[in-house]
Design a binder for these strands. Structure first.
Length: 431
RNA sequence: GGAGAGGUGUCUGAGUGGUCGAAAGAGCACGCCUGGAAAGUGUGUAUACUCCAAAAGGGUAUCGAGGGUUCGAAUCCCUCCCUCUCCGCCA
């Protein structure tokens, strides 16, 4: 959520930035500014009334204590002739009315404020669709596979790695069952990713897989994307769509010391996504699932350092892909393709040789203060004042599409070759 | 799930209608003391919003959350949430 004070002071810039994100309701900006101005004048007025009530109450208190009961009663009933004291009943009536006004204005302002997405960073290209994303770099050779090469879902069946049918039986589509070397490959990747993250300075946390409403709100999955999460109605909890939610919320309502920054955490969790409405040819096999495993990296950063850190995180992810020997490219997402809360997002895609298409395996974003404003995640700056921190997160990495690409790209007549870095984890070299 | 207790500042903990944003202690920060440290000692130590061009300085709100009673609520009443203890169940 954007800060009202920022919108108020930077109207032109806000409008210009929102245009990059193809925001359809720029009129909201002026409506918000006007509401905010109304709200503040109402508040100031209400506070003056409150002050009079408080002052009068204090006076009554003093009189009561010194035994001047009659004078106190006179003020209460409004019959006293004390300079500067207005009839209390009138004051309270005004206060009640203005208080109601204030609540209504706050609600109205909030409803508009949550509709504004984050402002994109100046390097974000304009654009509407994924075609407008900027290819920052491409790395590695796309492997040439023989004509009879198989897509990963067929390889998974051939080698008995993943049973999609079994998943359908016990749960439903999008919940695969990993077996044998398939299960072990998963576990190897998770351990490898966690070890690499720790080497890079991220401390591992193991967090709950269900979160309450406040957490969903903090990282802005709620209220915007309610339908994308599985909801456990009986206890009003949400299954996490990404570890970003619990890990970032670890720091909700926290004031950090400046020298604690940057705070780095990593964690492995399953992720649950309803993916309502996305079906079709492109979601076969592991391409799109309702449940998948992911290692996430999260950083809480000083605002001056957050873009530097975003590059660091991007490089970390790229390092993993290089070590696994997967050809990849890095995209800088255009305004129209970016997430609601992000200021700058890099997507990493690996080349799936059998499907002949790029698969997104990571997304690294800087949210600046968009999340921390809601989270009330702050640090005490050099001047001793509290200031909102920047939050960043990225997948490092999401498993299924990595598995898909590994299987497809590494298939040979002798079987599927396991990348060298994984062998210490899998304990086997071939599938 | 049943019974009971309780939620106060960074922590411990006092506070049952007024001078309480809140005693006291601990911690922390800065200073004094010291050769240096400990001890001792002094001062300070919440957050948000808002008024003022800014600073200085005001104001309002916040003692789990929301509502109510009252001129006035941490304190009384109602609703909800959470934590702890015991019993039951259980990996």
């Amino acid at each position: 959520m954007l800060q009202v004070s920022y919108i108020r002071d930077n109207r032109e810039q806000v409008l210009e930035r929102l245009a990059v994100k193809n925001f359809k309701q720029p009129e909201l900006v002026d409506e918000i500014i006007e509401l905010d101005s109304k709200l503040r004048s109402t508040k100031t007025y209400l506070e003056k009334i409150q002050m009079q009530v408080n002052t009068t109450s204090k006076l009554i208190g003093e009189l009561m204590r010194s035994g001047k009961k009659e004078e106190a009663e006179a003020i209460k009933s409004g019959t006293a002739d004390v300079p500067g004291i207005t009839d209390l009943k009138t004051l309270k009536d005004i206060a009640k009315e203005e208080g109601d006004n204030l609540v209504a204005l706050e609600e109205e302002l909030y409803q508009k404020l949550v509709l504004l997405p984050n402002l994109p960073h100046s390097s974000v290209p304009k654009g509407l669709t994924p075609e407008d994303n900027e290819v920052v770099l491409e790395h590695g050779e796309k492997p040439e596979l023989p004509a009879d090469a198989l897509p990963h879902w067929e390889l998974a069946a051939k080698y008995g790695l993943i049973d999609f049918e079994l998943g359908v039986k016990i749960t439903g589509a999008g919940f695969p069952v990993y077996k044998g070397k398939g299960a072990k490959l998963q576990r190897a990747l998770i351990n490898y990713f966690i070890d690499e993250a720790e080497k890079a300075g991220y401390s591992e946390v193991s967090v709950p897989l269900m979160v309450n409403e406040a957490s969903g709100f903090g990282t802005s999955q709620l209220p915007d994307k309610e339908g994308q999460m599985y909801h456990v109605g009986i206890d009003n909890l949400y299954l996490i769509p990404t570890a970003e939610v619990p890990i970032t919320n670890l720091y909700r309502e926290v004031i950090l010391k400046e020298d604690q920054l940057p705070v780095r955490n990593c964690g492995h969790t399953p992720c649950f996504r309803r993916e309502a409405g996305s079906y079709g040819a492109h979601v076969r096999g592991l391409n799109r699932l309702h449940q998948f495993d992911k290692v996430e990296i999260v950083t809480i950063a000083h605002p001056d350092k957050s873009y530097e850190i975003l590059e660091l995180m991007s490089n970390h992810v790229q390092g993993l892909l290089k070590n696994l020997g997967l050809p990849y490219r890095v995209l800088r997402l255009c305004g129209g393709d970016m997430g609601f809360g992000s200021a700058l997002t890099y997507d990493m895609e690996t080349w799936s040789a059998a499907q002949q298409r790029w698969l997104e395996v990571s997304s690294v974003s800087n949210f600046e203060t968009f999340q921390s404003n809601r989270l009330k995640l702050r640090f005490r700056n050099a001047e001793g004042k509290t200031q909102l921190a920047h939050t960043l997160n990225g997948s490092a990495l999401a498993l299924p599409r990595i598995v898909a690409t590994l299987l497809e790209n590494n298939q040979t007549e002798q079987g599927i070759k396991v990348p060298e870095v994984l062998v210490p984890y899998t304990k086997f070299e071939w599938i």
